[in-house]
Nucleic acid binder design. Sequence first.
DNA 1: GATAAAATGGACCGGCAAGTCCAGAAATGG
DNA 2: CCATTTCTGGACTTGCCGGTCCATTTTATC
Lengths: 211, 211
Amino acid sequence: MLTAKGAATRQRIVEGMSALVREHGAAATTLDDVRARTTTSKSQIFHYFPGGKEELLLEVARYEADRVLLDQEPYLSALTSWQAWRDWRDQVVRRYREVGVHCPLGVLITELGRKTPAAQALTGQLLEQWQDRLRTGVVSMQEGGHIDPGLDADRIAAWLLAAVQGGVTLLLSTGRVDHLEAALDTSLAMLRGTGVTPRWRDPESDVASMR
Amino acid sequence: MLTAKGAATRQRIVEGMSALVREHGAAATTLDDVRARTTTSKSQIFHYFPGGKEELLLEVARYEADRVLLDQEPYLSALTSWQAWRDWRDQVVRRYREVGVHCPLGVLITELGRKTPAAQALTGQLLEQWQDRLRTGVVSMQEGGHIDPGLDADRIAAWLLAAVQGGVTLLLSTGRVDHLEAALDTSLAMLRGTGVTPRWRDPESDVASMR
DNA sequence: GATAAAATGGACCGGCAAGTCCAGAAATGG
DNA sequence: CCATTTCTGGACTTGCCGGTCCATTTTATC
């Protein structure tokens, strides 16, 4: 069984390691670092995570993966107007501006997600969910006549997801959010532009905004 | 000085390590692996790279960075027609389909580029050059009337670069090139769409291609 | 408060991998 | 062919880090 105290310790270990992994990377984080940071002992770590570092890293991956989508709420789940898309965009940019190179997503994708098959499945699932939310948003905009209904919503969602990922990757490399902003702003402006056609004119759209 | 034999050995070490790093990652590659693969000895490695593993990794980063842009030629330097852009797109997709998760760029961005400041500067430079080539391409398309001249070419280049990076990142996570294709195709189609306006109609364009 | 289960502290082990060292072989150059 | 430099082989050292073990303390349950 697990007492309240035990659960607290376990949680402390996961969160402490997550922070360390975000700061220094998974490879550079030792169990001794975790021990020091969380005021625990080796035996506690192995008591709660018999699988050792690998099991612990998987738990960290789970923990971080959960946060990635949660951090985009409530906007990600209600992308039903251009204003909502803009709010979502702002939220994402703000979030990554805050965390900079120490972002959960970055560490998840570039380090954790490539180690074990289990972590790989986890990140795959995360990306799938993410893309699905975006797809839902695109569909609802199509239904509202704001986006050309002839476009393949899933493909557009994949495209948007790639834009975010690319922006984040470049953030990790350069330390600047410029690319993320350019990627999101341009993509959304272009998408908005598709609504402006003889058949699908949308009074809310403004092509000039992408300039 | 460096004899011909010495230069060959040195080169063998760099290439061998590059291959290993691409296959297994930088952290998982040991100098003993390199030694075995390149039929050399420890003393040789440290003879040519007194700085040890770190110096060697920087050399590997240089080696791989050079290849990234070279692999996109001759198209990247002559993006003067939609056909050229399409050829470039095909080249990129083909290339990454070949190498899959073991691509130079991926390992460079996600592992090498984040270790030392020197490697970071190297990848920064690479990305800058890359974006500049794209910008040049966009400008020449604007001059030809194929892209709306009101768009900020540098921003568009940043957007395109993010699309590629995002596609590659997702390739590394999922093992599939779908996202890279969606990202490039949709971006190019959208960009092409901007040429199709009352003022900038381009007979070569086809909005339907993005559907 | 007795007993069992859970939680904790920390010494210890073993392996791995980076880096050192030196002796000797091969090449260079006059 | 001699002297000097360069190149090579591989044993050895060193430190780190994941993982084990066991004694001890704390908590839960009746």
